[in-house]
Design a protein around this nucleic acid. Structure first.
Lengths: 157, 157
DNA sequence: TATTGTTATACTCTATAACTATA
DNA sequence: TATAGTTATAGAGTATAACAATA
């Protein structure tokens, strides 16, 4: 098994099969997120929270939907980020029950720094690839992520 | 940003750049692990623990090293798995201080079922790809995971 | 002395259920 | 009644520090 070098764990085969390769690649990528977050006392979920708020405000329910968390989990998550001065809660002007969570300047700065660092280290991960291979990996990963074959360039759908 | 469809969060660009693609792909893969685990009341870390033990015993310290966890965290992790009858602790015959953790038959069965399910669902993820593309993705991901360009087939190193 | 593992403690993170306030 | 959010509570998961037992 390949758990020695990368503790993906549950898949076998020595010349990496597809499942092994994707699982181990995901652990590699997540390790970058965990490491960069850790250097700023942020969990991966906190990083994702900041990322969502990067270019918009959002209510607690919406944030929970994006993160796959219950609204009750959001309360603590946002409270801890708020306590650190990274986000702010404002009452929604349209709905007296709702709050709008947004980044503070401090939060925006930290978000940008994490994004830079993550970008750098994930790119480093692909150092063994040639430029062509990196482009191919990007295209293939993008296809999987979007859940459909890529459209020819210029197709506006 | 692309946080709407996949809450990777911290990376921008619309035609997915490399970082975006890899981060989002990692979330997709991790979601499979989380989902399959959740259906059996296992966290991703528990799944990895079982995977490591699939073909060997290991001490607490070694397990912690593989999982990136402190030995004190291992105590509870293994204790919970042991309580469920998935793993067993035996005294090491060579070292009176050490314990050897191994899968019980129940744990081995659960591990196999999870591996099957994970394999199936991760493979489903690559459904948008042709066979050639899937092979290319596997090779490229394998190259990144191994941290070096792939050796020509037949090279025994 | 060094190493393996556990315990005590504290904090983050998560969910369920009950609650408040608004729609 | 339904919805947005919080609180109370319980449990998993993690780390640090102190400890026990063995090497």
């Amino acid at each position: 098994m390949t758990t020695e070098s990368t503790p993906a764990g549950l898949t076998g085969g020595h010349p990496l099969d597809t499942v092994d390769a994707l699982v181990q690649l995901s652990f590699l990528t997540q390790r970058v997120l965990t490491a960069v977050g850790g250097e700023h006392d942020l969990s991966v979920v906190q990083i994702r929270l900041l990322g969502i708020l990067r270019d918009r405000q959002a209510g607690m329910l919406e944030l929970g939907r994006h993160l796959g968390l219950d609204k009750s989990s959001m309360t603590g998550l946002v409270a801890r980020a708020e306590k650190r001065g990274l986000v702010r809660r404002s009452p929604s002007p349209h709905d007296g029950r709702a709050v709008l969570v947004s980044l503070t300047p401090l939060g925006a700065e930290l978000t940008a720094r994490c994004a830079d660092e993550i970008g750098r280290r994930v790119t480093e991960l692909t150092a063994p690839l040639t430029d062509d291979e990196r482009a191919a990996l990007t295209r293939l990963a993008g296809t999987v992520v979007s859940g459909r074959p890529p459209e020819p360039a210029g197709c506006t759908g």
